[in-house]
């Protein structure tokens, strides 16, 4: 498949880097200020695009919009997640669909905030929208629910934010306070300079909203989620939990049409108490009991793996 990659952050760059090893070509790349488009039937050399990005912080000499007009099969939308109208990611996806092109999202905004709108545009297009990378990084959560059949899935829950999980893990293991561990996470690059999206539960909530949209066929946005974060949680609450064989995890759940994210007590050595930046998705099914899928929930190559899995599905239209 010929890919146009919009967004040249950690995920976008990893897609550019890895596409060839999955048998796909990159024909256009855009970041927020520039783009580069391969002439005619040619493809871009990933190394030179990535080198220019790291040296000059641009990917090419064209305006960013030029990438959307390139001759591609799949638009990979990897711009930062935005709330509300989910722009510019939503607009990029719509532009691709209106040209009957496929869209693979790494950006959560369009499927969390405007799922129904996006599906309506998709309905009138020959292109399709896939978004495995938006939930749990490399973990195949969306596809698994799709395969099981949303009607046969009674609940989905899990640890969906690696930053929050890292902070809770360190606090419990070392008895350190929240501020201390957060600063450490920032030094390690595990937490952003502004960690509010992660520690206040917004990021996990967006992922749960996306899962709710998959489970119930749309109708959900962030406003429907009940969200509590872990910011300011005292270390003492974790030691009290530990005395009882429990620990605290930021758990997101979708069950009976209700989306909730908040700190929860879970058994200290239980399945959901994954440690560090690890994520886990737990799926309750009608006929097959409980499934647990855990793995790396974030990171460039990890998320790009999910993006390229979606591209792979689109390149096999019979089973996509």
């Amino acid at each position: 498949m010929r890919l146009a990659v919009v967004g040249a952050g950690v995920v976008g760059r990893a897609v550019v880097d890895l596409a060839a090893s999955y048998g796909h070509d990159v024909v256009a790349v855009a970041d927020s200020s520039s783009s580069v488009v391969a002439p005619n039937d040619e493809t871009l050399a990933p190394d030179s695009v990535l080198a220019r990005k790291s040296e000059e912080d641009v990917v090419g000499d064209d305006a960013p919009e030029a990438a959307l007009d390139a001759d591609y099969d799949v638009l990979v939308e990897a711009t930062p997640t935005t709330l509300g109208d989910a722009e510019p990611g939503y607009g990029h996806a719509v532009a691709a669909l209106e040209h009957d092109r496929h869209v693979v999202l790494a950006n959560k905004g369009p499927v969390a905030e405007r799922y129904d709108d996006l599906r309506a545009v998709e309905h009138d297009s020959a292109g399709r929208v896939l978004f495995e990378a938006t939930v749990g990084g490399a973990i195949p959560a969306v596809t698994t629910i799709d395969d099981l059949g949303p009607a046969h899935v009674t609940a989905v829950r899990g640890v969906l934010n690696g930053t929050a999980n890292f902070v809770l893990t360190r606090m419990a293991a070392e008895g350190l306070d929240y501020e201390h561990v957060l600063a450490e996470a920032q030094d390690l690059g595990v937490a952003e300079a502004d960690p509010s999206f992660d520690v206040e539960g917004t990021d996990a909530a967006l992922k749960c909203v996306i899962l709710a949209n998959v489970l119930y066929g749309g109708g959900y946005s962030l406003a429907d989620a009940e969200v509590e974060g872990i910011d300011g949680l005292p270390t003492e609450s974790l030691s009290l939990a530990a005395e009882d064989g429990m620990t605290v995890r930021l758990i997101g759940s979708v069950e009976d049409g209700v989306i909730r994210v908040g700190p929860r007590l879970v058994p200290e050595h239980g399945t959901l108490a994954v440690s560090g930046t690890r994520n886990i998705v737990q799926i309750e099914t009608d006929h097959a009991g409980r499934l647990n899928i855990s793995g790396r929930g974030a990171g460039g190559p990890e998320t790009a793996t999910a993006v390229l899995a979606d591209v792979g599905r689109l390149s096999r239209p019979d089973d996509a």
């Binding site: 306070d177 005292p234 270390t235 003492e236 609450s237 030691s239 009290l240 939990a241 005395e243 009882d244």
Partner: peptide, 19 residues
């Protein structure tokens, strides 16, 4: 129930485990 005071002085945030 079990009560735990915050270690930092001047902070009256308390945690309690309740069964």
């Amino acid at each position: 129930f079990s009560l735990r005071l915050a270690r930092e002085e001047g902070d009256s945030v308390t945690s309690a485990r309740v069964r």
